[in-house]
Amino acid sequence: MKLTNRSKIVSDKKITFLESLYLPAIVSGMGITFSHLFKKKVTVDYPKQKRPFADIYRGLHVLKRDDQGRERCTACGLCALACPAEAISMIAEERKPGEELLYREEKYAKVYEINMLRCIFCGLCEEACPKEAIFLTKRTVDSEYERESFFYGKDKLLEPLESEKRIDVSMRQTQDVLEFKKDLTKKHNK
């Protein structure tokens, strides 16, 4: 019994004169290439036509705000800890009185940076986040000329305040994830 029935018995017979002229092989090869003329092209005419992304595509991150437009991130650092590429860094700051409309909790991230050259878009930051503050989206990171331009700060990551410009991440909030986040027995959900 063979695994596949595609194996061929090797023979070392001398090639005939006709075969040594390569002509039959050439003709059959030309048939194969000719059939490719009419096949569907795999190239996409990129700027005019874009390949669809999966709904749960892991692209450029977004820092979410809550319903009242306050930043959800509390600069706990779990995302930075979870990040296998060590792409995330942040500086925490205490919320001053009068900033309650800006930040949801007493602590917030003054600086939040993701190095997009290091990021491998694995989504572990999203998984680690207890506050549902960071999500990966269908958007992609633009190409840049300067290395420094790839250090995305809060200016690029934070979701816009206007409700119509909010970024929908419901596709990445699967039932499993939501259940897991509710489970308060897990240490980091507290």
């Binding site: 490719h36 003329l37 190239t43 005419d45």
Partner: peptide, 11 residues
């Protein structure tokens, strides 16, 4: 060449 290789070629 592009068509033989299922590509679009220069456009």
């Amino acid at each position: 060449a592009a068509f033989f290789q299922d590509r679009l070629g220069p456009n």
